[in-house]
């Protein structure tokens, strides 16, 4: 009786666990099915040129964000990982963590209210700046986690050897943590690639990256902006074209995540904690 109950419980947990892969497969399957070639002439509003332009916009905005945010994010992570100031450090660390968890739409409104008027309209530069503001705390948060995995003993050893604070950081701690830090940066990049509403609010709604001060859209933003068209003709061409764009975006984010896993796997002392965020 008890053994049968135990087996049933294990089966139930396994079934619950299986739901995560199943959800992923369901999303991938729906997108592949929705994007299947139709053989009909394309009449929808989303033509392949616009989709490719939007994807180029994704690369451009994410690239700008990365270039701007990574030095700042890593710098602030190094600043935070130094645990000498107790309570103030905890408050600042919480601020960075909280900022990393603040929804994209809030960043979008921040950019729309405070940056767009100053720059005289939404464009590639403003979209890149807003994405950089989103990526930097995510990057910092990931790097702080990576740095905190380095044993305290290493820090003590640096102290004992007479290294200064920054010599310890640069010479001992970062070399041990850099793979996890790189994984954190890649995860933050994934956030920039997938961000939708913020770009929609500050991008100005162009076609592709035409110039610094030209309106821009990204794959995710175009998908949401045009989703109404798909709703207007659920079996039509727009829905199919958008599904292709969604599939491309899904594949891109998956590749980004795989890159992060590959970076982590070789270094992480605790393999089990590799999933999730």
């Amino acid at each position: 009786m008890s053994r049968r109950l135990a087996r049933a419980a294990t089966c139930a947990v396994a079934l619950g666990a299986a739901s995560t892969p199943l959800v992923w497969m369901a999303i991938a399957g729906v997108l592949v099915w929705a994007a299947r070639p139709s053989g009909l002439p394309r009449l929808g509003a989303v033509n392949p040129v616009a989709a490719l332009g939007a994807f180029a916009g994704t690369c451009a905005t994410a690239g700008i964000a990365l270039v701007l945010a990574v030095p700042v994010g890593i710098g602030s992570a190094l600043c935070l990982s130094d645990q000498h100031w107790g309570r103030a450090g905890a408050v600042l660390g919480f601020g960075v963590d909280a900022l990393a968890g603040i929804p994209g739409v809030v960043f979008g409104l921040w950019g729309y209210q405070l940056l767009v008027p100053r720059f005289g309209g939404g464009d590639l530069l403003v979209a890149g700046l807003v994405l950089a503001a989103m990526v930097a705390p995510a990057c910092a948060s990931g790097c702080v986690r990576a740095l905190s995995r380095v044993p305290v003993a290493v820090r003590e050893q640096g102290r004992v050897l007479g290294f200064s604070q920054w010599q310890t950081l640069g010479g001992l701690i970062v070399p041990l943590a850099w793979r996890d830090m790189a994984a954190g940066v890649v995860l933050a990049l994934g956030r920039a690639v997938g961000e939708t509403v913020a770009v929609l609010m500050v991008g100005g709604g162009g076609v592709g990256p035409a110039g610094w001060r030209q309106p821009v859209t990204t794959a995710a933003a175009l998908l949401l902006a045009d989703v109404r068209l798909a709703a207007a003709d659920p079996a039509g061409h727009a829905a199919r074209a958008l599904a292709r764009l969604a599939l491309l975006l899904f594949a891109t984010t998956c590749v980004v995540r795989l890159a992060a896993i590959a970076l982590q796997r070789t270094s992480a002392p605790d393999r089990a904690g590799a999933g999730g965020e």
């Binding site: 995560t20 992923w24 975006l249 984010t253 998956c254 995540r257 795989l258 896993i261």
Partner: peptide, 9 residues
């Protein structure tokens, strides 16, 4: 799948 799904937009 959790890692991949977590990155999905």
């Amino acid at each position: 799948s959790a890692a991949l799904l977590g990155g999905a937009s």
